[in-house]
Amino acid sequence: MKRWLPSPLLSVSLLLTWLMLNQSVAPGHLLLGGALAIIAPLLARPLQPHGHARLGRPLALFRLLWLSAIEIVRSCFNVTQIILLRRSEQVNSQFIRVPLALRSPHGLALLSCLINSTPGTVWVEILPEKHELLLHVFDLHDEQWWVETIKTRYEQPIIEVFETHEAKPEGDRA
């Protein structure tokens, strides 16, 4: 099982992609898509230096995605208001630094995707000295609020999701 299906979630999404592209659930397409879903992750394995991501708790991941979808819609309307109603000089856009405890590369990738998808915040880079995240915020009113929001609303659930995976790369590095 582990050997042939290293990442079940990736395989399922590949199969779904194939079926959606062909818009049918005929047995032939199921067979071809299934073959693709098994072979592609095996072939792509050497390309991924950190290996496939292992999800500790998939339910927590879906809850996180749902919450951030709501957050995306909400901040869309905030950014819309700012663009339409305020003059450019009154918008306080600044870079802020957020100290991160998250180390897993897959978790960091997910965090950067979620933060960048939310309008009004852009992830710039991780400063390597203190493992701080440099973030650009469109309309900054309270820096401490942003730091706490990112730590509690995004980072904590992501650490929970990738919890089981967390121990391994730490050990490898040490």
Binding site: I72, V79, T80, V91, N116, S117, P119, G120, V122, H136
Partner: peptide, 13 residues
């Protein structure tokens, strides 16, 4: 740095 936030709402919502 302000302009980069504009297209984000076009892309998502």
């Amino acid at each position: 740095y302000q302009r980069i936030h504009g297209p984000a709402i076009t892309v998502t919502l």
